[in-house]
Amino acid sequence: MSDPLLRIEGVSKHFGGFTALNNVTTHVNPGERFGLIGPNGSGKTTMINCVSGLLRNEDGKIIFDGKDVTDLKPHKRTGAGIARSFQIPRPFHTMSVIENLMIPAEFVGHHRGEKTDDRAEAMEILETMGMADKAEDPTTDLTQIELRKLELARAMAAKPKLLISDEAMAGLTGQEVDEVIDILFKMNERGITIIMIEHIMRAVMRFSQRIICLDAGQLIAEGTPEEIVKDKGVERAYLGSTDDG
């Protein structure tokens, strides 16, 4: 088996007296579709903020592509190949859709010393999302699902090895959810490793090859979707213990 693309080793994060992540250890393999679930406040977003670098973990190490990135700033990690979308879309709202994609294309692309046609590549990404006709539109005109797609498209423009999709489907209709899942499958087929954080179980179960479940900052379960569904700990975390009543 090849080495994992991402290794999270004993990572902890506290906010004051509150433990958001408690000694979490896991790994993500190259090319894998990886699901991250857990009830509200279980530490999912904290974990990916630690991976993307917006938060600095106090203990433990984050190793990406064989290198320790624990002390790297977010933009350096993006340069190394970690890109993410935001749960609440944060477009560059004074720019057009394609200009949004040009930012990572320019800043990450040049960083790697690549001299490709940024604009053509950005258009190609928008085409796979079905958003090519919106390229010149201001982001303020976009609908919810288009904003979610833009989040993914912009992350793709950074040419990541690992894409972290932070609740890209929350609040979308069933049909829109399928559309986003299709996009993520397409990205995965191109060899991009994907971490999906999601509340919509149908989506995570269908998409993921392997899932971990967090509860109150602890890793409580890890396995295939079938194993996770049957896991008693996961059931307790979501529904509460039946012994209580």
């Binding site: 993307s52 670098g53 917006l54 700033k73 977010p74 933009h75 993006t78 340069g79 890109a83 993410r84 935001f86 944060r90 477009p91 560059f92 709202h93 004074t94 720019m95 200009e99 040009m102 930012i103 990572p104 320019e106 800043f107 990450v108 040049h110 960083h111 912009r154 992350a155 423009a157 950074a158």
Partner: peptide, 25 residues
């Protein structure tokens, strides 16, 4: 320039800019 476009991204969303590879500081 690249500097100007990076500053614009910072103005719109500093965290998103940083995560999109812009060396904000």
């Amino acid at each position: 320039s690249k500097l100007g476009r990076g500053l614009n991204a910072i103005k719109d969303s500093e965290e998103a800019a940083e995560c999109m590879g812009v060396p904000t500081l």
